[in-house]
Nucleic acid binder design. Structure first.
Length: 691
DNA sequence: ATACGACGGTTTTTT
DNA sequence: ACCGTCGTAT
């Protein structure tokens, strides 16, 4: 989503004005909302009404005569952008309907907007393509092969790792050697080759006229720092808000500073103890340095928690207390009562899955709908066993942070074709599509591709030259694609273009996949969305920057009335809350992840991650520790290790928890007997009451 | 020569 | 789940 907040502007303050939202705020919140004259840092602990305060401050600025379109609202994640905009809309609508739109969205989507507008000044084609991380990794892989790293004996990092190194270097604006030494020490010996490869990647992007996510921030900063364009951009806004400021990286901070150029109209909100994006070069040092970066800044701290019960906060505070914080906060609940969080020790992930299902269903029977409950985990595969069990029991769930729509193979195929419509010579797109054909592998695909490029240079009929290299049986499949591309024109309506291309790729999808019908139906949604977009390049860019989580996202709001359990990684859950929260796999090695247990800073971040997870819960919180975990996720074998509870669950923390040892589990015997094979014979689902 | 399936080893988290 | 390697089929 290109989050454009449509905020309604309240009536001008005429004495009787729209002040009722102010009366609902506590003293500190109100001080923050009505602050004037200097940059403002709001240190908002978890659940302290951060979003409420930002929205109220936006409303207050509007009421004081600031025009909505002169307010810029920056968030870090798309979910936060959505949440913020929905809340702001609801609050401001209570004032007075006089339309105006706040400019807002994630850093990357807002950057994209400005970069496209000023593409010329940056030496980019206005129709430039956007590489999502998958595309970027594929391009790196191409360069990696060209550098001959594919066949070499010495192990060479994979595309994903290379992209991580690149990203950390660019976002942190630090020498790559430092980044490698610190975060990828095992690759120290290869740093010269890695550096050469990443330089080639940068050159290739330039040559192709494409921009990756990191470039987006780089280009925006360059615009903001420019002597001519910078002041123009800065002059567009009277006030800039930055949410989750603890997760900003150096590039983002520099951009915001450049956009203010000494103007005090800036409010940032964050909590240094919820900084969990260090791996992406974010640093809580930025929030700690706010007072240096923005002259004369004021700091206001919010500690009254409106979300959780005190027993949950006691445990969370105890975790927080283990670390040194430069801005100490201790959350206080606004209401009394509540149960202690539970620490559940069970046998393994299967037992864990059984228990979670059981508790979730019990809670539902007591009236707590599924959507008010969530299951969080450190990594997205921690919930694998649970997903099996939920499916088996027919408990509907939606998973965030799992396989994304755009990562599904058939969607990638279609997106490759859309990309070819923009640029006929897109080698990666061709390479992908050609290999879908029967009897075509990397060698033949590359040969055909070489012919295509060569023929184009000679202005010959490139397509018929290339298709000669393909096996006979492949031709009827690929010919419609060639034909559709030949007749496609940029000036045609986007909807028509996309529909024709979808039709052309039909045979290819049909022959490539066993279950092609649902896959094709899946692509219809994409076509519908394209119909409402502007140009094809813009549609593609928005798709990359804000991909739908699943194909269901296109099909309107089927979830609106449905009840479903939320499964999410802790990272994706930040900023959200549920009545009941179950946190999976809280064993040492996962909290902290064994890979992050190297440096002190990494362990600190893992601790904050646990804190973030715990503070998502309103009333009920359970931490699960499967004591036995398996090395192979779906393994045929029974290789396993024994885990112990997270090192962060110290005695002091445990004193705040109710400890529950679950001896055995529901269907205990038999399931593990033959490795992890599960042969379920059950008529239970027949008797399930589907409400 | 090339494609493709089977198998074994594996550095999370997101824009 | 992905990626590289190896054996077999075409």
């Amino acid at each position: 989503m290109f989050a454009d907040a449509s905020l309604v502007q309240p009536r001008a303050p005429d004495g009787s004005g729209p002040a009722d939202w102010l009366s609902e705020l506590n003293a500190e919140q109100r001080r923050a909302v009505e602050h004037e004259g200097s940059p403002l840092l709001i240190l908002a602990g978890a659940g302290t009404g951060k979003t409420t305060t930002i929205c109220a401050r936006v409303a207050w600025l509007l009421a004081r005569g600031t025009q909505a379109e002169r307010i810029l609202l920056l968030t870090f994640t798309r979910r936060a952008a959505r949440e913020m905009i929905a809340r702001a809309r609801a609050l401001v609508e209570r004032a007075v309907p006089d339309a105006g739109a706040v400019v807002g969205g994630t850093f990357h989507s807002v950057a994209h907007r400005f970069v496209r507008r000023h593409a010329g000044a940056l030496g980019l084609d206005p129709g430039f393509g956007v590489l999502d991380p998958g595309d970027a990794a594929d391009l790196i892989d191409l360069v990696r092969e060209e550098h001959g790293h594919a066949e070499r004996r010495t192990r060479f990092p994979r595309k994903g790792t290379l992209l991580d190194i690149y990203s950390a270097t660019v976002n942190g604006q630090r020498p790559m050697t430092e980044v490698v030494a610190e975060r990828f020490p095992w690759l120290d010996e290869l740093r010269d080759e890695i550096a050469a490869l990443l330089k080639a990647y940068v050159a290739r992007k330039r040559a192709l006229g494409v921009v990756d996510f990191d470039d987006m921030l780089m280009y925006w900063r360059a615009l903001a720092l420019d002597d001519v364009i910078g002041p123009q951009l800065a002059g567009r806004f009277d006030h800039i808000f930055v949410d989750e400021y603890q997760d900003t990286n150096g590039l983002q901070v520099e951009t915001v500073r450049a956009l203010r150029r000494g103007d005090p109209g800036v409010t940032v909100v964050g909590d240094d103890f919820q900084a969990i994006y260090g791996f992406r070069a974010a640093s809580a040092d930025h929030i700690r340095s706010f007072e240096e970066h923005f002259q004369g800044a004021t700091v206001i701290t919010l500690e009254r928690n409106y979300r959780s019960t005190q027993p949950i906060l006691d445990a969370a505070n105890e975790i927080a207390g283990q670390a040194d914080q430069s801005y100490p906060k201790r959350l206080r609940a606004n209401r009394d009562g509540g149960q202690a969080p539970r620490l559940v020790l069970c046998r393994d992930d299967t037992a864990e899955a059984q228990l979670v299902c059981q508790r979730v269903l019990e809670a539902r029977e007591e009236g707590l709908e599924l959507r008010a409950q969530a299951v969080l985990s450190r990594t997205s595969h921690d919930s694998a066993a649970l997903e099996v069990e939920l499916t088996r029991r027919r408990i509907p769930f939606v998973k965030y942070g799992g396989l994304r729509y755009l990562e599904a193979s058939h969607v990638k195929d279609f997106v490759a074709l859309l990309r070819l419509a923009q640029r006929r010579s897109d080698e990666l797109a061709w390479f992908r599509l050609l290999q879908r054909l029967d009897g075509v592998g990397p060698v033949i695909a590359r040969r055909a591709l070489r012919e295509l490029v060569a023929a184009e240079r000679e202005h010959a009929d490139a397509w018929s030259a290339a298709r000669n290299h393909l096996p006979d049986r492949a031709r009827p499949i690929i010919d419609p694609v060639g034909k559709a591309l030949a007749t496609d024109r940029p000036e045609q309506p986007t909807r028509l273009r996309v529909e024709r291309l979808l039709e052309a790729i039909g045979p290819l999808i049909a022959t490539s996949y066993a279950n092609s019908a649902p896959r094709l139906a899946d692509l219809d949604g994409l076509t519908r969305a394209a119909a409402t977009a502007g140009s094809l390049p813009e549609f593609m860019a928005e798709l990359a920057l804000d991909p739908p989580a699943s194909s269901a996202d296109w099909a309107g709001p089927p979830h609106r009335d449905e009840d479903y359990l939320v499964l999410s990684t802790v990272h994706s859950a930040k900023g959200l809350e549920w009545d009941a929260v179950h946190l999976l796999a809280v064993y040492d090695g996962n909290f902290p992840a064994c890979l992050s247990a190297g440096s002190g800073a990494e362990i600190e971040e893992e601790r904050r991650l646990l804190y973030v997870a715990m503070t998502r819960a309103r009333r009920s919180l359970a931490l699960y520790v499967p004591t036995r975990y398996y090395h192979r996720p779906n393994g045929r074998d029974d290789a396993h290790g024994y885990g112990k509870p997270s090192r962060f669950l110290t005695d002091r923390v445990r004193a705040c928890l109710e400890i529950e040892q679950v001896a055995s589990t529901d269907p205990p015997e038999g399931q593990r007997e033959t490795g992890r094979r599960r042969i379920a014979v059950s008529v239970d689902p027949l008797f399930d009451i589907v409400s």
